[in-house]
Design a binder for these strands. Structure first.
Lengths: 332, 332
DNA sequence: CTGTTAGCGCATTCAG
DNA sequence: CTGAATGCGCTAACAG
């Protein structure tokens, strides 16, 4: 391997001069510069970034943690990597499989100086155990949490979900099932408030049986389909916390012989690729911007800058899974 | 930041001793070990891996290059990261957007010692420009290429595709459209041979109009759907080189008012999540194993070991998009 | 503008 | 079994 020293020898200058032309810091005379450049060329020298990292104490790489490959990881990751690259950061991916140890392992990479910061898409440890790692570098996440030490991009799930429910209501649906995510998630809590207020406002009674939990998210909504299938009085619409689970629900119901939306209307959340392919009505809340804001936060922390975050909005994407309800059995 | 020296002082030993207990190399007496461990604990010391990397000359991280987020990247990536982790390697992701510069940029990270090896899922530069980088570390890829310097996991696309076509034939389809990927890809070439041989064997004439190219893969099969829609004499079945494009094709046709498989049968390739969700008949060729074999190759190169690769098989997954053809208009 | 010197944090000789 | 010394490749003062 050829090092800065080889280049220095060949160019007949000191290694600091070589360092200066490589890094672009400090003054270098025309002649010396040329000699160095020629020598680099001749030796086909390439700098060893590890050494530079050791010196600077940073690696310019951010860790991205997620359980595994579930929608909408794709768009999120793409946006995140893209904006990171534009600021000269790389991102290394950690799939934790919901394994707490693997997650800690990944977090530790920041402690070991291998990562400058960390973004957590989905976690399995409690926040109490994750937070202390913010000592070693900035942590951002997607799910909303209340923390001074961990950033989370914010969108108003309360009004977003209320919008979905109102839409369902307007279209004639009265018995609406809700599929919610992890119960300790603040977004889930916001949704529950939305459900309560919705029922109060419309003066509909809540049926606890119509509220489904998908805490583990193991099978992308298949078991929810089973549960729905086994219900005596079925809901005529289902609202989901994420598209991929809605997709799995639809897919499984189809296998069971049902027809969507004839047998049940479905509204998703995320506006991810799968919802487009399967014509699922859903809610778009600019995942892209959320990813970018998350990176911007980490970047600002790292570089003590204040690049402003971008505003986000929520909008309904009408497709085919929520038609206007036919009132065959109109309820009063 | 606390370093090995702080620990040494606190434990009243030399820093080499500390280094020995951390790295586990060399002999350390019971007492010294305990003193060091205590000191590490007390100072909550954590090793700086950059320094270790500089010393060892490796980073234990592999680069994973892909254009962006297209199926079946998900399963592939998951398997790759999973097996990498089991061998204590990390993987950093580079989305190149089909941009040659970005790809070179990523490859250069290996030159700069930031990456021990590289896996390329989809590339945009020619192999001639990529190959030279194998000087700096092992390169593996997915698409089959003929090269001494770049590894590619191998599955027999010729017989795999022939199997799909035979299946279609058995089920009564005679006018079969083919959607192929990048034309310089060896897999594509294998498919073309399969198409030729199939037509000869069954004594069907080939209609060039029924062969579609999806070189860019920009819109996941939407434009293929448009082309099909505009054909005067339509095919009664379509065979795809990848599930996500088949999914996009189906989705778009549905938007145009067609019904699948009533109007046209569809067979995919990959057995990826989307095909399961949309009930698309497809071919499984264990992407998981391919990902693992690719990693194993890189690992073997890096560590001069010879962990054996795993055998792969191809099998047809029957779902709902290729029903037995009703012979309303049976052809002779 | 350029060379000398001193580290970054750790691993690894080599003596003892 | 342990300490001292040296170096991984590069950057950053500090003189000159």
């Amino acid at each position: 391997m050829t090092t800065i020293i080889d280049v220095a020898k060949k160019a007949q200058v000191s290694k600091s001069t070589v360092s200066r032309v490589i890094s672009g810091n400090g003054y270098v005379g025309q002649e010396s510069r040329k000699k160095v450049l020629d020598a680099m060329e001749a030796l086909s020298y390439s700098p060893n970034l590890i050494a530079r990292n050791l010196q600077s104490g940073e690696t310019k790489t951010i860790g991205f943690l997620a359980h595994g490959f579930i929608d909408p990881l794709g768009i999120f990751l793409e946006s995140f990597i893209s904006i990171a690259k534009s600021y000269n950061y790389y991102v290394t991916l950690y799939f934790t499989d919901g394994d707490q140890k693997k997650e800690i392992d990944a977090l530790n990479q920041m402690k070991y100086k291998q990562l400058d910061g960390v973004f957590i898409l989905t976690r399995s440890n409690k926040w109490e155990v994750i937070e202390p790692y913010s000592l070693y570098g900035p942590i951002a996440t997607w799910h909303r949490i209340d923390s001074e030490r961990v950033y989370s991009s914010y969108i108003d799930h309360y009004s977003g979900y209320l919008r979905s429910l109102d839409y369902l209501y307007q279209r004639g649906y009265r018995s609406i099932g809700h599929v919610l995510g992890n119960s300790v998630n603040l977004n889930t809590k916001a949704r529950i408030r939305a459900i309560d207020d919705f029922h109060k406002e419309k003066n509909i009674s809540i049926n606890e049986e119509w509220i489904f939990r998908d805490d583990d998210r193991v099978d992308n909504g298949r078991h929810i389909a089973q549960l729905w299938h086994e219900m005596k009085t079925k809901t005529d619409a289902m609202a989901f916390y994420t598209d991929s689970v809605a997709a799995g629900f639809i897919s499984e119901l189809q296998s069971l012989g049902y027809s969507i939306p004839d047998d049940v209307a479905v509204i998703g959340f995320d506006n991810s690729e799968i919802s487009r392919l399967m014509h699922i009505t859903t809610v778009d809340y600019s995942i892209k911007l959320q990813a970018e804001n998350s990176f911007i936060y980490i970047h600002n922390q790292l570089n003590k800058e204040t690049i402003p975050e971008q505003e986000m909005s929520v909008r309904l994407i009408e497709r085919e899974t929520v038609p206007i309800r036919k009132h065959e059995e109109a309820e009063t």
